[in-house]
């Protein structure tokens, strides 16, 4: 998994509560055999005026100019500023996969749906819970100043605005450790790579037939 110690990026404010996983990535896009490639269909129904189908060239579709991600000033945003209960709905990981594939790295909201919150960490995304009034403040700044960026320091657990205002946030130590070091389950197991290697070396000696290829 991709590690994250700090992140600084352009902010897209999505002023809407209860954004569910079907909104994040509609179900017709789940047949894919991949975890990547969902980016063009992120928020598909909000983003485009037509009904999206898999394997479509999204660059030719009519876009909804009112949707925040379609406004040029938010192009290339990597920090999503969101409202209450973001990511509610199903447990599918396609939702974080789509956000990640689009380019988001940090999502800030007053609250997240549990499973979605968990799934984010598994996929290298950082969901940050900030109080509603701090959120309001950030929304206001982001909408007022073009090119507005936020800086996130996971080690220090802070979010800092361009004017130097800093807000602390809470995150579980184990999850933080995994994200700081880019560790997923596999990463954690690989921390014992040398133990695995020495087990394997010993087995090669004591049970060499386990390592045969077809004759």
């Amino acid at each position: 998994m991709r590690a994250m110690k700090t992140h600084k990026g352009r902010v897209a404010p999505m002023d809407r509560s209860n954004v569910d996983t079907d909104m994040i990535i509609p179900k017709q896009f789940l047949k894919s055999i991949k975890r990547t490639g969902f980016g063009p269909n992120l928020f598909d129904e909000l983003r485009y005026l037509d009904e999206g189908q898999p394997d479509q060239d999204c660059s030719k579709r009519p876009i909804n100019p009112d949707f925040v991600l379609n406004q040029p000033r938010y192009a290339g945003a990597s920090v999503l500023l969101a409202r209450r209960n973001f990511g509610c709905g199903s447990s599918r990981e396609h939702a974080p996969w789509a956000l990640d594939d689009y380019g988001f790295r940090v999502i800030i909201a007053p609250s997240f749906a549990d499973i979605f919150y968990n799934n984010c960490f598994k996929n290298g995304l950082l969901p940050i819970v900030l109080e509603e009034d701090i959120g309001d403040h950030l929304f206001k700044e982001a909408e007022e100043s073009e090119g507005y960026e936020l800086a996130v320091d996971l080690e220090a657990k802070t979010v800092t605005t361009p004017s130097g205002e800093s807000f602390g946030f809470e995150v579980d130590d184990f999850r933080r450790h995994c994200l700081l070091n880019g560790l997923d389950d596999i990463g954690v197991t690989l921390e014992d790579g040398d133990v695995i290697q020495s087990y394997e070396d010993r087995r090669r000696q004591t049970a060499p037939w386990l390592f045969n290829s077809p004759a």
Binding site: M1, I33, K34, R35, T36, F211
Partner: peptide, 19 residues
């Protein structure tokens, strides 16, 4: 297996032991 292989690619990992 498809998403598992995809996961390896994304994380830039190789199979531990091919055989």
């Amino acid at each position: 297996s498809p998403q598992a292989f995809e996961g390896l690619r994304l994380a830039n990992r190789k199979p531990w032991r091919l055989d």
